[in-house]
Simulated scan of single mutants.
Amino acid sequence: MHLSYCTNVHPAEDLAGIIEQLDTYAEPIRQRLGADVLGLGLWLAAPVAAALADDPALRRGLRAELDARGLEVVTLNGFPYEAFQAPVVKHAVYYPDWTSRDRLDYTLDLARVLSDLMPETAAYGSISTLPLAWRTPWDKSRESVARQHLDELAHGLEKIAAETGRTIRVGFEPEPGCVIENTTQAADLLRNVDTRWLGVCLDLAHLACAWEQPAEALDRLAAAGVPVVKVQVSAALQTDDPVAAAEVLRAYVEPRFLHQTRTSLGGATDDLDLALREQLPGPWRIHYHVPLHALPEPPLSSTVPVLRNAIHELLARTDCEHYDVETYTWGVLPVSQRPTDAAGLVGGIAAELAFARDLLAAEVTAR
């Protein structure tokens, strides 16, 4: 089992910046945890991924930098293409989507890079990616193009495995508002892919926002033959009474990311400000990744109980080995909860990893 934290919380998009963030954040987090090795769910923007894929010497150099700091990479986040910490991201994160060859090329570049970064002891590497596309525009023609690209992706991963001896698997990550929003849609649209190489990345905040029961969701995927190749250990924001919580919720409205809001009765908006304006009946779950170890300001809560249940079911029902803590929203949290410097972010991420480590260890021990 590999536990990591996702580096898409950091803005660096060139190799020098990535190495700098290893010194500023990753190595201090490892030291804070007292760990000999710290896992990173590395995010590489498309330009640096292409440069690394084209140059074996660059890949060897990055691997050496990781090794020197006691860092390992078995998984990459291939969902954001670039500029994920730009002032405004919103819908841009879903482009290019799987109707575009750029998305295919980027993902295969990541696979090539990961095959050289992952430790020899890892059974496989994983890459998470977007769930085909945002839901509009989408039609049979676009679906056909995307399926062709998924076939080419599987073929490319098989070729990399033959050349390197390393298995890389890609997980499509259900997310609110996308073509694949939940495990029902994942089971339907991924049923016929080559599951030696392709499967699902299960983000536990997204699972909660879809109001899915973890055991039922995993049974659904298993019945369709769709494997879970990666788990993103994350928690969403929740309120049972959005009217009472409206003032506190307004502090979470911000311009960078979408915060899709879903109600237990099927109500939906594509951002939190719209949900507040439309006064959807509660309870709400909001696509806003909140720190795992710290409760939001009352009367808000988080979906950590769903996360706990999901981890229990995942360990019982799947052979997934990759668990990646993905709280990328530290920089847009309400001011009172936002780290003010690098040391504050190091402390927050370390506390989340300790929470996830202890939860996984307790589940394994209980078994």
Results as ranks from 00 to 15, higher is better:
Gly225Thr: 03
Ala246Cys: 13
Asp241Thr: 12
Ala316Thr: 10
Ala294Ile: 12
Glu254Lys: 08
Ile311Cys: 13
Glu313Gly: 00
Val228Trp: 03
His312Asn: 00
Val306His: 11
Lys230Tyr: 02
Phe257Ser: 05
Arg220Met: 13
Leu280Cys: 09
Gly266Thr: 11
Gly225Ser: 05
Gly282Leu: 07
Leu295Ser: 15
Glu326Pro: 01
Gly282Val: 07
Glu326Arg: 02
Tyr328Lys: 00
Ala222Val: 00
Asp219Ala: 14
Leu272Tyr: 06
Pro281Met: 10
Asp241Ser: 11
Tyr328Cys: 00
Leu221Phe: 02
Leu237Lys: 02
Asp241Arg: 09
Trp284Ser: 07
Val304Leu: 13
Ala310Phe: 03
Leu314Trp: 09
Pro283His: 09
Thr327Pro: 03
Ala244Pro: 00
Val325Ala: 11
Leu314Ala: 12
Tyr252Gly: 01
Ala268Cys: 10
Arg256Ser: 09
Thr263Met: 05
Ala236Trp: 02
Glu326Tyr: 05
Asp319Glu: 15
Arg285Ser: 03
Val229Gln: 04
Gln238Asn: 07
Leu237Gly: 03
Gly225Arg: 01
Ala236Tyr: 06
Val243Ile: 12
Pro281Gly: 11
Tyr288Ile: 05
Asp319Asn: 15
His289Lys: 09
Leu276Tyr: 04
Trp284Tyr: 12
Ile286Asp: 01
Trp330Asn: 10
Gln279Thr: 14
Glu313Ile: 00
Leu295Cys: 12
Pro305Asp: 10
Pro296Trp: 07
Gln232Asp: 13
Tyr252Met: 02
Leu292Ala: 07
Phe257Leu: 07
Glu247Val: 07
Phe257Glu: 04
Asp271Phe: 03
Pro298Leu: 10
Ser301Thr: 14
Pro242Tyr: 03
Ala244Ser: 10
Arg220Thr: 15
Gln260Trp: 10
Val253Phe: 08
His259Trp: 11
Pro298Gly: 12
Pro299Gly: 11
Leu265Glu: 14
Arg250Tyr: 09
Ser234Leu: 04
Gln238Leu: 14
